[in-house]
Design a protein around this nucleic acid. Structure first.
Lengths: 209, 209, 209, 209
DNA sequence: GATGAATGAGTCTTCATTCAT
DNA sequence: TATGAATGAAGACTCATTCAT
C-alpha cells in the first residue's frame, strides 16, 4: 500500500475481535447516516454517535471522514462486482442470449440489495479526488464484459469489442439506476429485465456478427 | 414566484445595464469556479473574486450559495430542453427512424456545448433539496418524448409509451454522459450517434409495432 | 455645534420645502420601522425604502444610522418635555395637590401619544454612547420638578428637594411605563392617575412640611 | 425542555469536571465582556477569548450568542427572586409595616450584588423575543407580592390586590434601578430604603384598609 | 484503548456606508 | 440632487481533527 493511499484507507488493521466489531459498526453507521441525512449534512460526530462510539474511537480506526465513505463504497462496489462476475462466469459457455440475460439479471440484482444506499452513494458523494475513483464501477465492469466478449466473439476487432462492452455496461447501469431512483416498482417487478433484453439482444447479436 | 422559492432565485432584479452585466459575470464566474475546483471547494468568496466583484455585490443579487448554482443549472437545463424540443418539433412528420436520429443528435449536441460544466453539475451537485429538482432533466425530457410518441404511435397503450420514452431518454442520456466523462473523442467524432442508433432503432421499431 | 456632535445630528439643514418633507418622511419611516420590526432588525435600507427614498438620499441628510434614531428620540423627548413643562407652568400657583395631579396627568398623557414608539425607544435602543444621553428624560424632568419645588417649598433643604423630585419623577415614569408595557387598559382608562395620586399625595405633603 | 427552547439553553450538559469549569468560565466571561463593552459590541469571539477558550469550545456548550446572555440573565434573575422570596417568607407573620421594610430591603439588596451587570442587562439587552421573557422579573415578583398580600389582607378584592402588588413592585424596582444608574451613593448608604418606606407605607396601609 | 473536551481554520452572510452615473 | 450599484469589514457559527485524561 502506497503512502498516498494510506490517507484513505483504514488507519490500523483491527486484529482483535472487538476491534473488528467496532469497525463494522462504524461503517454500518456511516451507511445509515448517509441514507438518513445525506452526504453533506453527515458529520463525523453524527456517525460516531450512531455507531455508539466516541469520536476519538472513530478516528482510531479511520484517519479522516473520506476514509469512512471510501470503506463503505468499497464494500458496496465489491459486492456489485462479485455479483456480475459470478453471472459472467456462470454464463461462460451458455448461448450468448442467455449470457446477456444473466448479465442483466446480475445488474438488476446488484441494485436491489440496498437501493437507498446506492442512490446516496452515486448521487451525493462528490466525484472529485479519490472518492470518484472508488466509485468507478463502470470502468471495471466494462473491462469484465470486454474480457467476456473477447472469449465469446474472438473475431470481433478489439475496438469494437470495447465499444460494445461500454454500451452494454452503460445501458444496463443506466436503466437500473433510473429504476432505483424514479421507478422502484419497475425494479421490484423485474419488468425491467424484459425491457432491457428487448433493447440489448438485437444490438448484441448484430454487433457480434 | 412563491416566497419559498425566493430563497433560491435572485434577490433583486437588476434594472440598470451595469448590474445586468454584474449578474452575468457572477453566473459565469460560478461556472468557471465549479469547473476549476469543484462544487465542494467552491466558496462564495472565490466566486465573487473570480467575477471581479465584492462579496457584498454577489449577495445583492443572489440570496445564498445555492441560488448561484440554481441559476447556472437553470440556464444549462433550459438549453438542453430547447435543443431537444427543437429536434422533436422538426421531426414531427418525418419517418420514425429519422426522428430517432434527430433525437440522438440533439442529445449529443446538448452535451457538446459545455461538457466540463455538464460533468461538474451532474456529478458533484448534491441531489438533495431543490437543487436536485432543477437538475431533473430526465423527467421533463421523458415527458417530451412520451408526448411525441403519443402522436406518432397512437395505437400503443399509454403504459407502454411511457416505458419506451423512459428507455429512450435514459439510454441516450447515459451514453452521451458516459462519453462526456470517459470518452470525449467518441463524443466529438459523433461515432456515438451511429452506435446509439444501432442500439435504439430495432428497439423502437419493434416497440411501436 | 461641536465637531463631535456633528456626527449625530443632521448632515445639512434642509432649506427647501421639498428637502424638509424628505427629512420628515425619513424620520417618520424610522419610527414605523422601529415599531414594526424592532431596533436590531431595522436596517437603513428598510428605512429608506419605507420612506420612499433611495439609500443615497437618506445619507444625504443623515450621516449614519444612529443619527436617525437620535432625531427620532429628540422629537419624542421634546414632546414629553413640552407636555410636562406646560403642566408645571399651569400649576405654578395652584395648590400643591392639584399641581401633583397635573404632573401625573402630564406624565400619563406623554405616554399616551405613541406608546408603541415609546416602548421600542426605551426598551430596545441601547443606552450606550450618545443615544443614551438623548434618551435621558429622567434627568431633565427631575430638574424641572426640582425647580418647581424650589419655588413652591422654599424652606426645604436643597438636598431634600432633589430627592423628592427624583422620587416623583421616577415613580410617575415607572408607573406609566409599566402601564404602557404590561397594562395598556389601565393606562387608557386613567385609573392609573388615581392610583398614582393615592401613592404620591401623602408622600409629597409630608415631604414638603 | 421543548425543542424550541433548546435554541436558547445549553447545547450539551458538561459531564466532566473540566467542562463544568469551562462553562462557568464562559458565563463569567460573558458578564465581564457585557459590562466592559456593552451588549452590541460584544462578540462571541471576544467572549471566548476572555474565557480563555476557543470559539469552538464556546459553541459546544452554547448554541448561539443569545443563549449566553440567557444563561447570564437566568442566574441574575434567579438570585433576585431568591432574595425577595426569602424576605417575604421571613415576613410571613410580621406586622405589615416591617414586611414592607423587608421587601424594600430585599429589593435594594438584590441590586447591590452586581449593579454594573444589572445595568447592562436591563438597559442594553433588547427586550424582543425570548430574551425579554427571561428578563421579566417584574411579572414574577408582582405575582409573589400579590400572593403575599392575599394572605395578609384577605378582605381586599382580588383586582385591588393585583394593582397594589403592581404598584409596590414597580416602585421599589424603579427607585432601586434609578439609584443603580444615577445615584449609586444613595443606594450604598441605604438612605433609599428610608425614602421608599416613607413613600410606600402610607399607600400600603390605606390600600389594605 | 476509549473518551469527549478542546481546537481554530474556514464559510456564509449582513449591513452601514461610499461613489459613479 | 437623487439613485442604486458596489463595497468590505465584521461577525456568527460549523465541523474535521487533535489531545489530555
Amino acid at each position: 500500500m502506497s503512502a498516498a493511499d494510506a490517507r484513505f484507507s483504514q488507519r490500523k488493521e483491527p486484529v482483535q475481535a472487538r476491534s473488528r466489531l467496532t469497525v463494522k459498526a462504524i461503517i454500518e453507521a456511516t451507511a445509515q447516516v448517509l441514507v438518513a441525512i445525506g452526504y453533506e449534512r453527515a458529520t463525523t460526530d453524527t456517525i460516531a454517535a450512531r455507531a455508539g462510539v466516541s469520536i476519538g474511537t472513530l478516528y482510531q480506526y479511520f484517519p479522516n471522514k473520506e476514509s469512512l465513505v471510501t470503506a463503505l463504497i468499497k464494500n458496496h462496489v465489491d459486492e456489485i462486482m462479485r455479483t456480475v462476475e459470478a453471472a459472467l462466469t456462470e454464463a461462460a459457455d451458455a448461448p450468448l442470449e442467455s449470457a446477456l440475460q444473466g448479465l442483466i439479471h446480475a445488474g438488476v440484482e446488484a441494485h436491489r440489495a440496498d437501493p437507498a444506499l446506492h442512490k446516496v452513494l452515486f448521487e451525493q458523494v462528490p466525484r472529485n479526488k479519490l472518492l470518484g475513483k472508488h466509485l468507478d464501477t463502470s470502468g471495471k465492469l466494462q473491462a469484465m464484459i470486454e474480457a467476456f466478449l473477447c472469449r465469446r466473439a474472438p473475431g470481433l476487432p478489439r475496438a469494437r469489442t470495447r465499444v460494445v462492452a461500454l454500451v452494454l455496461e452503460t445501458t444496463v447501469e443506466a436503466l437500473t439506476h433510473r429504476a432505483v431512483v424514479d421507478a422502484p416498482d419497475w425494479l421490484r417487478s423485474r419488468e425491467i429485465e424484459k425491457e432491457a433484453l428487448m433493447l440489448l439482444r438485437p444490438y448484441l447479436l448484430e454487433a457480434v456478427t
